[in-house]
Amino acid sequence: MRIEVAVNGEQREADVWPGESLLFALRERLGLPGSKNACEQGECGSCSVLLDGTLVCACLVLAAQADGHEVVTVEGLADDGALHPVQKAFVEAGAVQCGFCTPGLVVATADLLARRSDPSEDEIREALSGNLCRCTGYQKIFDAVRLAAR
């Protein structure tokens, strides 16, 4: 079936299998591999995207449900090649090791800071509780969030 989705501000069309996820469509049909596929069951957050401005796991959205809607992926955060402040902060704080969790954490952090520009420690932890990182131990990630909030 054919779907039409506004991805990162651009109207895109894709032929999808009716049962496939938005994550699969983004990665395999639309050439946007930034959103990562690690668990396909909503547990890790590495596929986090914004659907109509709301933070969701792309692996749990049916591609067909995104038809006629707006999606922003990690690829859509940088502005004309200039890194998003959250991306810059992750680089500066050394919050990236293998990098597999990074796109999801960057999108989740951008979502948090758009809603709360100066989040408390608890708010940061709660906001990122759906994003797993197997490398960093999270301290540098929290540093990056605080850095980006400044």
Binding site: G42, G45, S48, T54, L55, V56, C57, L60, V61, A108, D111, E126, A127, S129, G130, N131
Partner: peptide, 9 residues
Amino acid sequence: VGSPQIRNR
């Protein structure tokens, strides 16, 4: 429930 991503959906 779950995480912010799960609660949003």
